[in-house]
């Protein structure tokens, strides 16, 4: 258990640093802004208490906000997906055996992980980009931004699954 906590602290630091030092500097286009730090929320253990999940989501979002000068924007989006995560997981019909583990791709299989992570990422990105612009002017542009960035984030998160969470 203790080992697990250390591991998650490390994962937190890594996903924040990868986000602010690498992902935020990928300036291909303003339509492709990956938010890789979601990895941390995605693979927290399935049996984590919901209040802890919310608090960790808030801390994660606030840390990213401190680095990007956007107080509250990332925090509101991460708290939102942290709140929705149990519902999304419940809807994925997992076995009882799988319910005690972390929802990584190696543990729950590609199809389930694909569906679960994609829903979480898309919700997060849409929330984030609309909160960021804080209006519905340029609705379609923001829609496109959210959608394309979601795909981009998803690709990075799947790659991370192959790199660090192999069985």
């Amino acid at each position: 258990m203790n080992k697990q906590i250390h591991w998650y602290i490390l994962l937190f630091a890594v996903s924040v640093l990868v986000q602010v030092l690498f992902m935020n500097n990928l300036q291909f286009s303003r339509f492709l802004n990956p938010y890789f730090y979601l990895l941390f929320i995605i693979i927290l253990p399935m049996n984590i208490p919901r209040y802890l999940l919310l608090l960790l989501g808030f801390i994660l979002g606030m840390t990213i906000d401190v680095f990007t000068n956007t107080p509250g924007i990332h925090a509101s989006a991460t708290v939102f997906v942290a709140f929705l995560r149990p519902f999304i997981l419940n809807a994925s019909n997992l076995d009882d055996k799988e319910k005690v583990m972390c929802p990584t791709m190696a543990n729950i299989g590609f199809t389930l992980f694909f569906r679960y992570a994609a829903i979480l990422i898309v919700i997060h990105h849409f929330f984030l980009f609309y909160i960021e612009i804080f209006s519905f002017t340029g609705f379609l542009q923001t829609f496109l931004r959210s959608f394309l960035s979601s795909i981009f984030t998803f690709v990075f998160i799947v790659i991370s699954q192959f790199l660090i969470f192999r069985k």
């Binding site: 919310l54 979002g61 906000d65 956007t70 509250g72 925090a75 509101s76 939102f80």
Partner: peptide
Amino acid sequence: VLFLFLVLELLSLTFIIRY
């Protein structure tokens, strides 16, 4: 859980508005 969610979300929104 619902209350904690609302509190944290309101806190974030306050930050955004005071931004």
